[in-house]
Each structure stands twice: as C-alpha cells, then as structure tokens.
C-alpha cells in the first residue's frame, strides 16, 4: 500500500496547477523512489515529467509499485479543499480504485477526508535519452514567464537563439515584431535573480509560444528555471523543487 505525507499541501497543489492544462488524465506512478508522472499532451508536441522524491515527504511508505490513474481536473477539485499549510496524507491500497486524501491543519483541530475515484489509464511511456545540450540557461522563472507572455501577444512562435552574445527570444507577427536578449549576469548575493548561460555551441530553434506560456504556470514551484537547448532536439524546461522537479519537453518547429 501507499502512505505518503506532505508537510505542506501547497507542493502538490502547485504541481497539479502547473500541468493540468497540458494533460488531463495521467498515472501517478508510486514506487520506492517517490511519486513520478510522465505524460504527453494530446497533440504529442509536449511532454511533462514530474518527480516528488521520497525525501520530500514527512512519511513515505510504498511496498510495491502502484499506478494511480488520475483525472487532474477531478484531483484539483479535491485539492481545493486543502489549505496551503495543511499537512496532506495520501493513501491507496495495492490495486486501488480510489485515492484517499486527508488534510489536517497545523492546529490539529480540523481533519478533512476525501476519496478520489481512480481510473485505468493505458499510458505510453517514452524513453528520454541523456542529452548533452548545446546551451543551458538558468534564469529567474518570473522573467522567463514575462518574456513568453509578452511575445505571445505578438506571435504564435518564438525563435530562440543562444550565442556567445547571450540568449535571444524573437518573434514576428501581424502587428509587428519583438525581441528580448538576455546577457549572462550572475548575481553573487542572490543567485536566483541572476542569469547564467553555458554555451557549448550556438543554437537556433523555433517553438510554439502557446506551449511555453503553458509551461510557465509552473513558475510558482521555483524562483529559477533552467532552459536546455540543442539544435534539432526538443527543448527542456526544468523547474527544480527542493526534493523533486517538474520538467517539460517541447518539440521544435521545422522550417517554413
């Protein structure tokens, strides 16, 4: 059986908020390394991979591998009943047809108990090769979100170019064009506010802004985001948490 306790409900609430517009039904795979999820969007353009590691749980017990087939919209309805600071306990049997969720406030005088019906989800699993990326950019997640939102008002696509000059996001649309260039600017006192660029080789790729804006819903998970790029392979966007991560992969667009 599974028994997993999070000190703060906000961790799972934020993860679900971050991915629910990308995927609808997915398996939460529970095993002795924690809770993992991998799912593609319907159009097979984007993939989300999530891992909540056992170290992030106040209590974690999972005797055998359990797949929890969850509709994320339904899960979000139940999670709405949890306050951010509530302790959350997830419980499931070995072949469960429901997931039990218990939310307890810090004063320990309120216990909320919910059951969420599970579903059988036959999900394909993709092997993601280890990749040496041509360019890796670490920057404030709020700034990346702002750039994606601003450019999405002008165009459907963004060209991302990483050179030794910096990383340039540019787009062209019906009303005009826009570009934002970031130069390497490490912040010694507050590293989460700096921008670092590791460049092995120049990279130039084009991506759908609709998806990037969607990924930015994970900004609440981390102050920083890591963007990894190589020519002609999917982009990797990673939001690292204290004990886990949410990663998004996005297939590039191909020539006009």
């Amino acid at each position: 059986m599974l028994e997993a306790r999070l000190e703060q409900s906000s961790v799972l609430k934020k993860v679900v908020d971050a991915i629910k517009d990308l995927v609808q039904d997915c398996n939460f795979d529970c095993n002795d390394s924690g809770i993992q999820l991998q799912a593609m969007d319907n159009s097979h353009v984007a993939l989300v991979a999530m891992h909540l590691k056992t170290e992030g749980f106040a209590l974690y017990r999972c005797d055998r591998n359990i797949a929890l087939g969850i509709n994320l919209v339904s899960l979000q309805k139940v999670l709405r009943a949890a306050q951010n600071e509530d302790v959350m306990t997830l419980k499931a049997e070995d072949s469960p047809d429901a997931l039990s969720l218990v939310f307890e406030n810090s004063e320990n005088d309120r216990i909320s108990e919910y059951d969420l019906k599970l579903m059988d989800i036959d999900q394909e699993h993709l092997g993601i090769p280890e990749t040496e990326y041509g360019a890796t950019v670490k920057m404030p997640s709020a700034e990346f979100q702002r750039i994606c939102r601003d450019l999405s008002l002008l165009s459907e696509s963004v060209a991302i170019e990483a050179t030794k000059e910096g990383i340039k996001f540019s787009c062209t649309g019906d009303i005009g064009k826009g570009a934002v260039t970031l130069r390497q600017n490490p912040n010694v006192e507050k590293p989460e506010l700096g921008t670092t660029i590791e460049l092995q080789e120049p990279v130039a790729l084009t991506f759908s802004l609709k998806y990037l804006v969607n990924f930015c819903k994970a900004s609440g998970l981390s102050n920083t985001v890591t963007i990894s790029l190589s020519n002609e392979v999917p982009l990797l966007i990673e939001y690292e948490m204290e004990h886990g991560y949410v990663r998004f992969y996005l297939a590039p667009k191909i020539g006009d």
Partner: peptide, 14 residues
Amino acid sequence: TPLQNDLHEFFTMV
C-alpha cells in the same frame, strides 16, 4: 507558420 514536430520523432516508446 513553421510546421510542428511530433515528440515521437525524438523519443522512443519504452
């Protein structure tokens, strides 16, 4: 508008 790739072109099913 450029055409969109599919992730299956890059990642294999396991």
